[in-house]
Design a protein around this nucleic acid. Structure first.
Lengths: 149, 149
DNA sequence: ACTTTGCTTTACGTTAACGTCAACTATAGT
DNA sequence: ACTATAGTTGACGTTAACGTAAAGCAAAGT
């Protein structure tokens, strides 16, 4: 790849290299990383996996709010035990929406139904897990009572 | 390890090698595996990780209801995105309970509080995720409407 | 001009959670 | 006695999701 030296002939209006005053906010990879307490490596990895597609300004990645939201969704999915592949599947629904034909749209509805079912399962799992925690706590406190009354 | 050939001098009452009629049920590893749709390998691995400790009858592993419940808890934890290490931490609470001293018991209460917080986070994650799904579905149906009215 | 700071790619390393043989053993049925 | 059917212990392989280190660019401050 020839290091293309096109000198930003794009007329991005009052494009200040930094200090977007009253403009749509952009983030460097480090900012985003700190913001979500992940490493830049993680963010680049997610891009490599097709979960993010930030703008490029020269060599650097520029993240917009749209990207920030996506990262948030991704991390949320992770906390719920989804794999990156599964998350990408959902994320791609977003992109596939605007120009989707009928068959694609119906396919999306199918996937949505699946995910919805999984969420219900998770909710049930949480409910049961909380019961367990309650149970352990109760017995734990009982043990403490019977120890030093 | 000398293959100890002590011929089961234990008086396990009407211990039929199989066919426990009206007795506490026991399971072979394969049964348990099928029951939870995991492989025997997985179950052995969980044992190796300290999550299970089945009885041994000779060379074979014998699983009781207690073990079955533990496996169930483990898989539930996995679905919620916990690592085996985290799950073990909770599982060990169970064991550490009966003979726990005051300091240990308080430590358990600490961990319980942490887990509880995590569960709340998960619940919030689910709530938000469901909103997302609702949103996508709405827009998806709208796209279908505007396609073939 | 020089250094710092932050980013870039490339590439190999690591960890968790199993999968996949291979070689062996024990029990049950015929 | 032989075979089929689980189950057993290694031991190495695999995949996902990053970590880590190397080498280099580029804008920004001093």
């Amino acid at each position: 790849m020839p290091k293309s030296s096109h000198i930003a002939s794009q007329a991005t209006p009052p494009d200040s290299t930094e200090g977007d005053v009253s403009e749509k906010p952009t983030y460097a990879i480090g900012e985003l990383a700190e913001m979500f307490e992940v490493t830049p490596r993680t963010i680049r990895f997610y891009e490599q996996e097709g979960l993010l597609a930030p703008e490029r300004r020269g060599q650097r990645r520029i993240y917009h709010d749209k990207d920030r939201v996506r990262l948030k969704l991704t991390l949320r999915g992770k906390r719920l035990g989804f794999t990156l592949a599964e998350i990408r599947e959902v994320v791609e629904l977003y992109d596939a929406m605007p120009d989707g034909n009928a068959r694609q749209l119906h396919r999306i509805l199918e996937i949505l139904a699946e995910k919805r079912a999984e969420m219900e399962q998770r909710k049930e799992d949480i409910r049961l897990m909380q019961n367990e925690l309650d149970d352990v706590e109760t017995r734990c406190r009982a043990a403490l009572e019977g120890l030093a009354p």
